[in-house]
Deep mutational scan, measured.
Amino acid sequence: MAAGGDHGSPDSYRSPLASRYASPEMCFVFSDRYKFRTWRQLWLWLAEAEQTLGLPITDEQIQEMKSNLENIDFKMAAEEEKRLRHDVMAHVHTFGHCCPKAAGIIHLGATSCYVGDNTDLIILRNALDLLLPKLARVISRLADFAKERASLPTLGFTHFQPAQLTTVGKRCCLWIQDLCMDLQNLKRVRDDLRFRGVKGTTGTQASFLQLFEGDDHKVEQLDKMVTEKAGFKRAFIITGQTYTRKVDIEVLSVLASLGASVHKICTDIRLLANLKEMEEPFEKQQIGSSAMPYKRNPMRSERCCSLARHLMTLVMDPLQTASVQWFERTLDDSANRRICLAEAFLTADTILNTLQNISEGLVVYPKVIERRIRQELPFMATENIIMAMVKAGGSRQDCHEKIRVLSQQAASVVKQEGGDNDLIERIQVDAYFSPIHSQLDHLLDPSSFTGRASQQVQRFLEEEVYPLLKPYESVMKVKAELCL
């Protein structure tokens, strides 16, 4: 049975990233139509530049190519590739079939990587351009969430054990800070992308030097003109047959890092959902379990974690691919890159769409948070109580021993009897502590235990987050809708 299948058929496997999760716009960027249309555009740009620099290419040939950029006979191309065992030459023939007058000058002087690699770089750039505003929107939604809850005390956790208090907004800023680093890295790697350009079979530009009869300047002009037509500021000066596969490492490393950030955020949300302090959106008709109707599973956060793990592992592909590119190139890269580049971007696209949807509907339960604080705060307040007693004339050592005994009794009630923490009640009825009984409410005010959390939130948002989001103001209103 021949390899390949009808990918629109229910009898043929289709990647869930495309069929179930990723956005239509990201799927289109990695589609065959987008790819092969870009090949034709690159052939047109090459012909236009070659004509401008004096090669015998007519206006009629150029116009014929322009008129057929979208006229792609995919069936013919597939048949040609089956016959020739070469995808680029299959599309040269297919393009030439609908451009008979231009057929002889299509791909003039070029090698397969002229269309293959340059198209990949265009796709990487455009895919990054799709991700950047999506990530900015996630940051914006979380920034709104953090600002609104900047002063809401909550129990902090280290080692997932109760620690000092923080605020809900401050905790959210930990998430935002990681995503801001990801946004900066995505922008950097996007701006650092260079075009492969017009380089020939081993990167020496020998074929173009021959076409222009040894004119170095025209060869350099050709490279520059096509690079500018493709919208790049610069091209690699040095290439082998391909652009260095280190570029793929750079791009997928940034995406993998984004995956790590999203995994951490969504894990926190899942843990908070278990504590009943916070939940992701839950639709009115949504079913959490087929057997347990009360369940409210954090399905979206779980999906993000599941896909983020996949995204983090994909960076190993370009690392290994770059390491086995012998001399000017081997074909070890080809099949692998067809999979890992598309999957990385479709996965990143999915987790950003999902995280935006989550961040637009996060639900906080202040009463649950308050109750958990009441359970733990008495123990945390013991040092403040000791200091207040010393100020009232008591002995630190005597007070410490009193607190120690009462704390152990209260802990026994919590752990052995399943009761509430009654340390404060014990202190309130103990005559030894009568000098500070009137101060206990103040000493137990949760806001006095959150330090500068709310001020940190305000400063972080104003100095770091809002300036970073400013270039994306025009796209901030787009909502994230999930079908599944």
Rank of each mutant, 00 (worst) to 15 (best):
52 T>A: 04
231 G>C: 04
16 P>T: 14
421 N>L: 11
175 W>Y: 00
457 V>K: 01
451 G>C: 13
307 L>T: 15
75 K>C: 11
418 G>V: 14
211 L>M: 12
321 T>N: 00
175 W>T: 04
112 S>T: 14
389 M>S: 13
57 I>W: 10
89 M>K: 03
152 L>G: 08
236 F>P: 13
449 F>Q: 13
87 D>K: 04
308 A>Q: 07
149 R>P: 03
366 P>H: 07
462 E>A: 15
227 T>P: 12
212 F>Y: 12
299 M>E: 10
32 D>L: 11
359 S>P: 14
390 V>Y: 06
238 I>G: 00
291 A>E: 11
332 D>I: 00
309 R>D: 11
447 S>H: 12
323 S>V: 02
45 W>N: 01
174 L>Y: 01
88 V>I: 00
75 K>N: 06
35 K>S: 08
247 V>I: 07
482 L>A: 14
420 D>E: 01
150 A>Y: 15
291 A>M: 15
108 L>S: 08
241 Q>A: 03
41 Q>G: 03
402 K>G: 05
148 E>D: 11
126 N>R: 01
30 F>Q: 03
135 L>H: 06
112 S>P: 02
221 Q>N: 13
76 M>K: 07
349 D>F: 06
51 Q>K: 03
415 K>D: 15
459 R>H: 14
183 L>W: 04
452 R>D: 01
364 V>S: 09
409 Q>E: 11
87 D>I: 12
238 I>S: 00
157 F>H: 02
383 E>F: 03
57 I>N: 05
120 D>H: 09
276 K>Q: 00
356 Q>V: 08
107 H>N: 14
363 V>W: 04
389 M>E: 00
314 L>E: 10
454 S>R: 11
409 Q>A: 05
109 G>V: 02
92 V>W: 04
258 L>M: 11
283 E>P: 07
378 P>G: 13
34 Y>T: 02
425 E>I: 02
229 K>D: 05
280 E>T: 11
400 H>T: 07
318 P>G: 02
308 A>T: 12
51 Q>D: 15
29 V>L: 11
222 L>P: 14
438 S>G: 06
461 L>D: 06
60 E>Q: 06
466 Y>L: 03
288 G>I: 04
412 S>W: 00
107 H>L: 03
76 M>C: 12
102 A>V: 04
443 L>V: 15
413 V>Y: 11
447 S>P: 02
195 F>Y: 02
358 I>C: 03
